[in-house]
Amino acid sequence: MSDPALAAPRTWRSPTAEIRPVRALLIGIAAVFIGVFLVFPLVAVFIEALRNGVGAYFGALGDADTQHAIWLTLMVAAIAVPANLVFGIAAAWAISKYEFRGKAFLITLIDLPFSVSPVIAGLIYVIMFGSHGYFGPWLNDHNIQIIFAVPGIVLATIFVTFPFVARELIPLMDEQGTQEEEAAISLGASGWQTFRRVTLPNVKWALMYGVLLCNARAMGEFGAVAVVSGHIRGLTNTMPLHIEILYNDYQWVAAFTVASLLALLALVTLVVKSALEWRFGHELTGGPR
């Protein structure tokens, strides 16, 4: 109740605040909107998953194909996220610490995967590596399988999560400027030392933020992976694909059980993210994502 508008006598109110009914109305609208569109679906996932009790919930997790799907999803994320992390750092360094022409265009290119339909992301790899694609015959001759196998899933996942880390870092590093790095260099530090001792501590929370979102999206991607997966049970099914399969197998509880794992992941992501924001808010720019 630190806001003076609430504590002050009724006749006075802050010139930069709305009257109480308006506030209540706005908060109400926001709460209902978020409730219907965001909270309902989340709650529905857990209710469906626990419909037949906790026993059925854990029983569903014991299934071999389900466990493989979980393992595959973790592995794909374990490859895709670090790859995009390294790229994000490199791109942010090049873009924010130097001045060169065509920067805005480069940023647009980095953003591009955001607005490319996931289906198209899958399609481009089919066109490249499919049997009738550009490199298909060569890969076939050398017995290398890319689409309908793990590498294709990894590639598609990297594509859709491509900009997450870079987009988080670029505005922040841009804002921080180059003085600190220049000072470190002039004092004799090497480039790597400068990055590790000066830049990294400045951006570590934003970096983590980007990694979290990147990870959540990597584990949850459906459209792009569906096109390149081949849907082989126990081999190329990721969790989101497995959810669809279970759903179509009349195993609704099992489907929502796996879904609830991903929803839990989403919740953990949100909690960690909020904790970061709360603790280190001043070190994060809330730039557009």
């Binding site: 679906p41 979102l213 959540a216 949850g220 459906f222 989101p240 929803a263």
Partner: peptide, 8 residues
């Protein structure tokens, strides 16, 4: 919505 898989 950033974090929840689209299929779910």
């Amino acid at each position: 919505p950033f974090a929840l898989p689209t299929a779910v």
